[in-house]
Design a protein around this nucleic acid. Structure first.
Lengths: 312, 312
DNA sequence: GTGAAAGCGCTAACAG
DNA sequence: CTGTTAGCGCTTTCAC
């Protein structure tokens, strides 16, 4: 339109103190301008305390802001439903990112529904091999192989694995990486070397009883833990039993969380680009340029990096 | 209305798969149903990584959900404006909670505007003595006194204080508590004993040079740090210089963060009810019952608790 | 207790 | 390029 007209309108608007009403805009446009972030229910732990979510969320926030979207937080609750599609039907959100998704029946139902109804969504840090959803994940298989290979290079031969629950692709990916690395090195993979926690520090701590015994018996000389929290809990538990990293066993964690740098000895771990994962998930949903750039594949796998520190 | 009518309507709605449109509801009601949470810009640190915000946010989320509100995250950006009032004018939010507020001119302007226009908002963990805003804070003066008294009881006499920037009431409150406790014990308060960091681990780490020297000179035998992150950074820095807690100095942190339990030796600290603070702030804004119960005062001060651990 | 209708403040489509 | 107008899907008010 004519510059002068624009001027005139703008001036008039300023004069009467006009401010557009976002509610009316959203209504008329039939777009909420919100991107929903679905957060899992984590009992006891106040969710964000986990480094993991915090970083991803920050990444999402950065991109959402850049694209003119607001971030709507959806807290799932204990035993609460997963009617993600309803959020779209009621138009509360235009797109959504699912964090902490887990491969259980009701989650699969919810995601299938989202997909079949054509709502834009993206998973972060969880893959479903049966079904192809837009996903941003990191290469945890490679990360796990790197962790185990690192232990092998350090001369360790009896490497235990402290994994998380199998409903997370994170866990199964790591198991695969662990197994592959051992096999490649010609080392046996035995069920007795594999322990399952729940990614909490407490579960790592409690595992110290069994793992400590195995170390004492000389059947384990290193542990690869599927996240830093469990690694740290384990380290503390083992210390109480008189076992020290370095002297009695080597230890590798996963996530490169703040804690891994704080504890002593500092934890060797695998750095995951959580922030970047959040950014990409949001960009895929919101950023026209990013879409145009052809992030074709349904699954993006980001590289991870081993960070060698004192526990190895 | 008649039960039968209700039934009939509900049935018809189910039949045609009717779902209310939240956008239209919000528009017609002139209520967004959103509570905004304003997050400070923290350079470098991806905000949520801080235990502090994570906990508060979880508390807000719990209450918002209970009251039927959604949580809209507002990320401030570097150098970005603080036009909080605009969020209300555009009707994006019905109420808001300001996290990480800091006493600087432009923030005061923004808050004054909110108040003068009568928008409902609440500050968390930051007080303004000049102006009375709805606020939920913890009793950091008492917490600091408890920390310092604890050191005194342990026989320490030359207690340094590693504080944060003065634009946070947190910092000034702690300074006051520190000062009061020393005075009550008849100990001198000298400027040489007071150090200022910025609440980051790095700033604590860097302070180890000066504090280490003071310990070496025998003029300091204990440090009270205004948060755990700085305490931990300091501890690491001092360790590199050959000073160990217990043997060479005592140390008290603040926040009772996860990290305080993870490091070794475990950090004596002050527990702050962050989660509860978030809950209350939200309840004050949203919960009719809570309002009715008469949370009259503009300022709520929650109690904190000293947690004695190994560093003292 | 029920039905009808007038907005809410914008967007988008269309005529001038 | 500009001005006009018909909705968007609900809530609320008002008759009945």
């Amino acid at each position: 339109m004519k510059d002068e007209t624009r001027e005139r309108v703008l001036r008039a608007a300023a004069e009467i103190g006009y401010v557009p009403n976002a509610l009316a805009q959203q209504f008329a446009r039939r777009k909420s301008g919100n991107i929903g972030v679905i957060l899992p229910f984590v009992p006891k732990v106040h969710l964000f305390s986990t480094y993991y979510f915090s970083e991803i969320l920050s990444g999402i926030g950065e991109t959402a802001k850049r694209c003119g979207y607001d971030l709507l937080l959806i807290f799932r609750e204990y035993g609460g439903g997963r009617d993600y599609a309803k959020l779209f039907r009621t138009q509360k959100i235009d797109a959504c990112i699912v964090l902490g998704s887990e491969n259980v029946p009701e989650e699969r139902v919810a995601l299938t529904e989202l997909k079949s109804e054509g709502y834009p969504f993206c998973l972060v840090n969880q893959r479903y091999d049966e079904e192809s959803y837009a996903t941003v994940d990191s290469d945890h298989m490679a990360g796990s192989m790197a962790a185990v290979n690192h232990l092998i290079e350090r001369g360790r031969r009896n490497i235990a694995f402290l994994n998380g629950p199998e409903q997370y692709s994170n866990s199964t990916d790591r198991l695969q990486g662990y197994t592959l690395a051992l096999q490649a090195a010609g080392l046996p993979v035995t069920a007795e070397q594999i322990f399952i926690g729940n990614y909490s520090r407490k579960s790592g701590y409690e595992m110290a009883e069994r793992i400590g015994k195995a170390i004492g018996d000389g059947v384990i000389d290193a542990v690869f833990a599927a996240n830093d929290r469990m690694a740290i809990g384990l380290m503390q538990g083992l210390r109480e039993r008189g076992y020290e990293t370095g002297r009695d066993y080597s230890l590798v964690g996963y996530d490169d969380s703040d804690s891994s740098r704080i504890i002593s000895p500092m934890l060797t771990t695998v750095a995951v680009p959580f922030y970047e994962m959040g950014r990409r998930a949001a960009a895929r949903l919101l950023d026209v340029e990013y879409k145009a750039a052809g992030a074709e594949g349904e699954l993006e796998l980001l590289p991870v990096r081993l960070i060698a520190r004192e526990t190895t």
